[in-house]
Amino acid sequence: MQGVGSVLVRARGLTKTFGEGHAQARVLDGAGLEVARGEFIAVVGKSGSGKSTLLHLLGGLDRPDSGEIELDGVRIDRLDERGLTAIRRHKIGFVFQAFHLLPELTGVENVLLPARLARDGVEAAPRAKELLERLGLARIARRLPTELSGGEQQRLAIARALINDPALVLADEPTGNLDEESGADVLNLLRRLTDSDRSVVLVTHDRAATSIADRVLRLEGGRLVA
């Protein structure tokens, strides 16, 4: 485990229910966690245990039925849509299992997209170039996602997540669609993100991922246990 700093994320008593009537399922039932700055946390659990839901709540993509989420001192569970948009724009970077690169945009355009949404596209251009070089993606920057391998696409997705220099990176099974070698590259990349005091929460089934995490939390019965 590397050294970690002050608390970046504090979540308490999170509940989330899906479905209605007999089909109702409470996937989160009082879950809570704290993520320190520079900490790498891996969350594991069975399929359907609520791992992705937890990530969506932490990232402001969805709202809890009850509970509190504090990100960098801001109660995001109380924010309206505009406030959540600002949080997603500036504080959080997402990495999805299916990459979710926009197929109409080239690699560099995909990477620059969050910066352009934050109206920072011009200033972010050199940053994007540097990121792409650092991640070994410079030669494919002008290609469309459909012309890239899975590993290249995921590394582009990570570059996209980093372009606005977020404090928290949320990765939802980022190696799920990759072969072993590409998966290892991506995990190393994510691990290195914490060197710059950035926190990473990773949802995974991948044993390799758990081995490089500072902490591994298991989601069981709607709660997180160490």
């Binding site: 990232g59 505009r82 948009t85 724009r89 979710h100 926009l102 197929p103 949404l117």
Partner: peptide, 16 residues
């Protein structure tokens, strides 16, 4: 819809 969801997840406002 997924592309729209992605750009919303990346911080796009309704105006964007």
């Amino acid at each position: 819809r997924r592309a729209v969801a992605v750009i919303r997840a990346l911080g796009a406002s309704r105006a964007q």
